[in-house]
Amino acid sequence: MFEPGHLHRANTIASGDMPLFSVDLFYEVRQDPSEGAMLHMRLQGQVNGQAFEEVFELHRDTAFNFASVASRLAHKHGLPINNSLIMRSHAEYDLMFEDIRSKLGAHSGEPVNLDHLQQDGL
């Protein structure tokens, strides 16, 4: 389920390699005095009854790699590698991507500072 600033994913029936999970991804744009607009994200939930929380920030120009970062962190906490937390419902991903783009005031074709890729762990 997606609403601006929040994505919720859950699997209530374990099957095969898909565990039980309930995960929420919250996001907002924050202004950092030295870095400018940053996408602040909080990933929290549980996988097979084990709770977790991860907080991370991405620079404005690297924010669109949010799905990769969030999925990597979810995998770290037990979601299978072949399950993308965000891409499971591409329509919701598109809505989330556009919401983030709007909040950041970003446009296609803007340059990426390669130092930000390294700083953001991408």
Rank of each mutant, 00 (worst) to 15 (best):
M1S: 08
M1K: 10
M1A: 08
F2T: 03
F2A: 05
E3W: 13
E3I: 15
P4C: 07
P4A: 14
H6P: 07
L7N: 11
L7F: 13
L7T: 12
R9A: 12
N11D: 09
N11Y: 11
N11P: 04
T12V: 15
I13D: 12
I13Q: 11
A14V: 10
G16C: 11
G16Y: 15
M18T: 01
P19F: 10
P19S: 11
L20S: 08
F21H: 15
S22R: 11
V23K: 10
V23A: 09
D24Y: 14
L25R: 11
L25G: 15
F26W: 15
F26S: 14
Y27N: 09
Y27D: 01
E28T: 10
V29H: 13
D32S: 07
D32Y: 05
P33H: 12
S34R: 11
S34P: 06
S34W: 10
G36S: 12
A37L: 14
H40E: 13
H40G: 13
M41A: 12
R42L: 15
R42K: 15
L43G: 06
Q46T: 08
G49P: 05
G49E: 05
Q50I: 12
A51P: 03
F52K: 10
F52G: 08
E54A: 04
E54C: 09
V55E: 07
V55A: 10
F56I: 01
F56L: 06
F56E: 03
D61C: 05
T62Y: 04
T62V: 08
F64E: 03
F64G: 07
F64P: 07
N65K: 07
F66C: 05
S68T: 09
S68V: 08
V69G: 01
A70D: 14
S71H: 06
S71C: 07
R72C: 10
L73K: 02
L73T: 04
A74N: 05
A74S: 07
K76L: 10
H77V: 06
G78E: 03
L79D: 00
P80L: 03
P80E: 05
I81R: 02
I81W: 05
N82A: 03
N83S: 14
L85R: 01
L85P: 07
L85E: 01
I86A: 03
M87G: 02
M87I: 02
R88T: 08
R88P: 03
R88N: 12
R88M: 06
S89V: 06
S89F: 00
E92S: 02
D94L: 11
D94R: 10
D94V: 13
L95S: 15
L95E: 15
L95R: 14
M96R: 01
D99F: 08
I100P: 02
I100C: 00
R101Q: 02
R101M: 00
S102Y: 00
S102N: 01
L104N: 04
L104A: 12
S108P: 13
S108Q: 08
G109L: 06
E110C: 05
P111Q: 02
P111C: 04
N113F: 04
L114S: 05
L114D: 01
D115W: 09
D115L: 10
H116L: 03
L117V: 09
L117P: 09
Q118E: 15
Q118N: 13
Q118M: 13
D120T: 01
D120V: 01
D120E: 06
G121V: 01
